[in-house]
Amino acid sequence: MSDTSTKPSIDPDEIEKIATLARIRIAGDQVAGVTHRIADILAMVDTLQAADTTDVEPMANPLDAVQTLRADEVTETNRREAFQAIAPAVENGLYLVPKVIE
C-alpha cells in the first residue's frame, strides 16, 4: 500500500451517487460545497497514503485481541410484544413498512 500516485479528486456526480447509496439527501445548492469538503478530507487521506507501509500488516481492528466465540445455545426468548409495542405499524406479527417491490 505505498501507492502515492493517485491525486484525490471527486466530482459532484460521485458525491450524489454516494449520497444516494447512503440514503442522504443533499440539496442541489449544497453539492458543490460538500464535494469541496470531501475532496479536502481525501487530500488528507492522500497524505497518509504517502507513508511507507511496506512491512506493515493491514489491521482489521485496532484492538490487539481476537474474537471470542460463544457456544451454540439458544439464550433468547420471544419478546415480540415488547419490541412491537414501539414499532410504528404491525399486523399479524409482521412489521409494516412502505411498499418495496424488487
Binding site: E73, E76, R80, N92, G93
Partner: peptide, 27 residues
C-alpha cells in the same frame, strides 16, 4: 444447521410465528 443464530442467541427453527425469533440483536 446451528441451534442459534450466527451473532445472537435466538433460535433458528423454521416456520415459527413471524418475529418470535428476532431478538434485539437481530432487530
Amino acid at each position: 444447521a446451528t441451534r442459534s443464530k450466527i451473532f445472537s442467541g435466538s433460535p433458528t427453527t423454521f416456520g415459527a410465528e413471524p418475529n418470535t425469533q428476532a431478538s434485539a440483536v437481530d432487530l
